[in-house]
């Protein structure tokens, strides 16, 4: 009868999908047209070596700057979703503090070259070896594996947008004050994602695969925090004086 649940109609799901998709497209760091025109050029060997020979703290700082830039776009994405700005300020902060890096990892598949196992970084496409100086090869390998597995799903921009919003509206984050409202938004986003996947005639397994990605994202973010703690123990002054303030606020 056109209803997916007593409270959400197909029209509402289409509208939510449209809003979230529009927010996503307006706030992607690299527009689709840019990606199509981009010369997907890999780093030259001497450029890889140049990144590898950077002092550990300099490479950490460079990556912190890049992550922070990407996060600012995610904040803008969240702000353009009506339901997000309807939440109390505490919960907006909680959701972004916990979920913004996860969305950055999701968005990474847009600028990932599966065939070469490279990602757009600092103007060119870089493989995991370019990040050697960070001293966290295991985390880098996992991040690349995650991007590759996301690419294998061949999601459309709309599906990617809805999955990003679904992750952002995680109702199980600690310190939420209006958990029920977040839960409601997450359920609606989930229904919209399900609806769009059905509309796009994707096989049933895609939604299950995406649900599995949620725990993979959490694991990546936890490991980022662990690596940052280990780095902080050795270079506390570098973080204090050279890392972007927003990065310190989110992960400090």
């Amino acid at each position: 009868n056109g209803e997916t649940s007593p409270t959400v109609s197909m029209a509402e799901l289409d509208h939510l999908a449209h809003i979230i998709s529009k927010s996503h497209l307006e706030t992607c760091q690299h527009l689709r047209e840019e990606l199509q025109q981009m010369n997907w050029q890999n780093l030259l060997q001497d450029e890889v070596e140049s990144y590898q020979s950077k002092p550990r703290e300099v490479m950490w700082q460079l990556c912190a700057v890049k992550i922070t830039e990407a996060i600012q776009y995610v904040v803008e994405f969240a702000k353009r979703i009506d339901g997000f700005m309807d939440l109390c300020q505490n919960d907006q902060i909680v959701l972004l503090k916990a979920g913004s890096l996860e969305v950055v990892f999701i968005r990474m598949c847009r600028v990932f070259d599966s065939q070469n196992n490279t990602v757009y970084f600092d103007g060119k496409f870089a493989g995991p070896d370019a990040f050697k100086a960070l001293g966290c090869d295991d985390l880098i390998t996992s991040v690349f594996d995650f991007a590759k597995s996301m690419c294998l799903l061949h999601l459309t921009e709309e599906e990617l947008a809805l999955f990003s919003a679904f992750v952002l509206f995680s109702a199980d984050r600690s310190w939420l004050q209006e958990k029920l409202q977040v839960e409601k938004m997450q359920q609606r986003t989930h229904l919209a994602l399900q609806h769009i996947l059905q509309k796009n005639q994707r096989e049933d397994g895609v939604l299950n695969k995406l649900r599995c990605k949620v725990s993979a994202l959490r694991s990546l973010c936890n490991r980022h925090t662990e690596k940052l703690s280990a780095f902080r123990a050795i270079y506390p002054d570098v973080i204090r004086t050279h890392f972007p303030p927003l990065y310190k606020e989110l992960f400090g």
Binding site: Q72, V75, E76, N90, Q92, I93, L96, L246, E249, L250
Partner: peptide, 17 residues
């Protein structure tokens, strides 16, 4: 939480660009 996340709070307050 707002006090500890002044930059994030500020970004959320700014009108969408």
């Amino acid at each position: 939480l707002k006090e500890k996340h002044k930059i994030l709070h500020q970004l959320l307050q700014n009108s969408t660009s």
